[in-house]
Design a protein around this nucleic acid. Sequence first.
RNA 1: GCUAAUGUGGCUCAGCAGGUAGAGCAGCUCACUCGUAAUGAGCAGGUCGCCCGUUCGAAUCGGGUCAUUAGCUCCA
Length: 648
Amino acid sequence: MIKLTLKDGSIREIESAVPAYEIIKGIGMGLYKASCCVKINGEVKDLRTVIDSDCEFEVCTFDSVDGKRTFWHTASHILAQAVKRLYPEAKLAIGPAIDNGFYYDFDLEKPFTQEELDKIECEMKKIVKEGLALEQFELSPEEAVKKLNEMNEPYKVELCEEHVGKGEPISFYKQGEFVDLCAGPHLMTTAPVKAFKLLSCTGAYWRGSEKNKMLSRVYAVAYPKSADLEADIKQREEAKLRDHNKLGRELEYFTTVDYIGQGLPILLPKGAKVIQILQRWVEDEEAKRGCMLTKTPYLAKRELYKISGHWDHYLDGMFVLGNPDDETKECFALRPMTCPFQYQVFLNRQRSYRDLPMRLTETSTLFRKEDSGEMHGLIRVRQFTISEGHYILRPEQLEEEFKECLELAKYILGTVGLLEDCTFRFSQWDPANPKNKYEGTAEQWEEAQSAMAKILDHLGVEYEIGIDEAAFYGPKLDIQYKNVYGKEDTLVTIQIDMLLAERFGMEYIDADGTKKRPYIIHRTSLGCYERTLAYMIEKYAGAMPLWIAPEQVRIVPVADRHLDYCHELMSKLESAGIRCSIDDRAEKVGKKVRDARLEKLPMWITVGDKELENSTVSVTSRREGDLGSMTQQELLNKLIDDIAKKVR
RNA sequence: GCUAAUGUGGCUCAGCAGGUAGAGCAGCUCACUCGUAAUGAGCAGGUCGCCCGUUCGAAUCGGGUCAUUAGCUCCA
């Protein structure tokens, strides 16, 4: 008798070992039809897995993350099968499920065109209709390599050959005439993959290395029901309407000019205003928390970067002025980060433990020579500004100060409204990094990373681990954000650095009179201003919250005779620091209101005979709708109150 | 940097079996002084990203280049 503990806590007993799908059929045919995979003692397994001992047994449908992944993985096999039917010469690489769908990489003569993708979709529909059963079988590594060679699938051979030494059997799945090297799990048949769409065909390096051949990657998504597919596609399209790169240009936050260069956006008055508001606010918040503002040069001689390690590790990423190879001449580089400059503040004189923590901060403009294909609107640029701080600490201050940094970052991100969509990544080194990216010894890394792990656990931060995502000098806590296309970038970073203090000879005299090496936290409180502006445009679809909107109030006179009253009102608002303007064009009210809406202003006020007579204003808020008639003072109070509260 | 697609007035787009450009919106002018998502009329605006080539002739064809977009790689 085998005892299964189901998800609801109930116990189910079976006589003898049977495949999981038989057990599910026993629970109910409805569940069987919806099942994608199972979790045995929390481990994701194929429906075909034979259950031969007591376990916790959970059925995963498409509604679960693991169910979706299995569903999409089978869908990727259907895609590959269709491609092989239509293009037998195509070579298969890999085809995994991802967070929002799946892809398959093919080696092709030419990438697929949209028409070809349409044809492939049609062929996939046939395969689904055929309702092919997926069968799993195993071969010894040697047999597997032989079979894949016979199939003329060199990429699969390469994948398989890595397992030859391990002696474990190699798993394959077969559906109809199509066979693929695959660990699974998979659906029972191709039939449930009713609704799918091939989204794009793009380039992707084999095994993610730029040294390898570029393959053609087909991205796609699939659902059991076509309504869900349509909803997904609609949602993807709607997300694109929020794209800051389009909206930000239309609403005149920024622009770019070919002959200025890639990744060098012009912040137009509205964009510059938002960034000014953010900067002043962040600098004030930092000062409240004991930070001291510094102002350091935008460039330095190569000698500085040699000490910091940037010359060895980051030269390709810097704009160099002069010949970097000519040691007889001065050579400068624009700064890619501020650390080595800010350390000079500490180094300015001998330091005592009483000086620590020394919290230095700078609203610093940085320059990074990104590859041409990397630039994206305001999110990835070659010149940008961050609120960059370096906290120089006694070792025992590390945790408390790290916590302060995290709280500051969360406060800032929370206020601008982005925190709720952020994720946290603990970025660690990879000792096996082939490019020798990292400075320091394994012991130093171990020390820094375990210190950070301990702090993160103490603070209860939920994070994922990013291997090989660390800075060259230390581990990071990265606060990540996704743009409207789902592409993730870092918004804020907090880093523990135990290496650069040594390189710069930084030390302090401790209470016992001995010299000690300080720890350093590198942190941003608001990461890149340009990037933050971009994400805010996307988050709010261009309709900035009142406190940060470049124009907060538009005054709309009904007729010219109301203009004097409008000007009187405007000067009152302006003297209270409200950013406003009067729309004195010879247009109708309807037109002016329409334009105020299209410009996504947070508030507009109409002034006509009624208002003039009663000394009132008629107020409409973008978020709250028609607020009706108010006295000027009521309006002013509301504005001042909402702005102070930074109401979103 | 790599793969692919795209590049026509400020914006959205038409024109592309090669015969030297067209619309709507925006802009400007005039009239209308108007009550919460578009008043009307008129005017002006483009060497079709740039360079080279094919051709009697190129926005339309070919090559190169720059830029943009998505993805890869890299990164805040």
